[in-house]
Amino acid sequence: MPENEEKAAEVFAHEHEEEEHKTPGTVVLTLALLISFAVYYFANWKALADVWHVR
């Protein structure tokens, strides 16, 4: 039986009830995103500096 799907109505009904949660894996994924962004952003500013000289 589709266990998760069967619980959908119940989950929607009780979604306002706060629960304690620990999400270390998602925190690591988020840090990976931020590091990727920092590298890409810096590379673009470096590329801009290489072609657009300020004297």
Partner: peptide, 20 residues
């Protein structure tokens, strides 16, 4: 959406980099 779309979107939306 996050790793490719988000990162490129914020970067390209920066005025100076958008010139490139």
């Amino acid at each position: 959406f996050g790793f490719i779309g988000g990162i490129t979107g914020v970067t390209l939306g920066t005025q100076q980099i958008n010139i490139l």
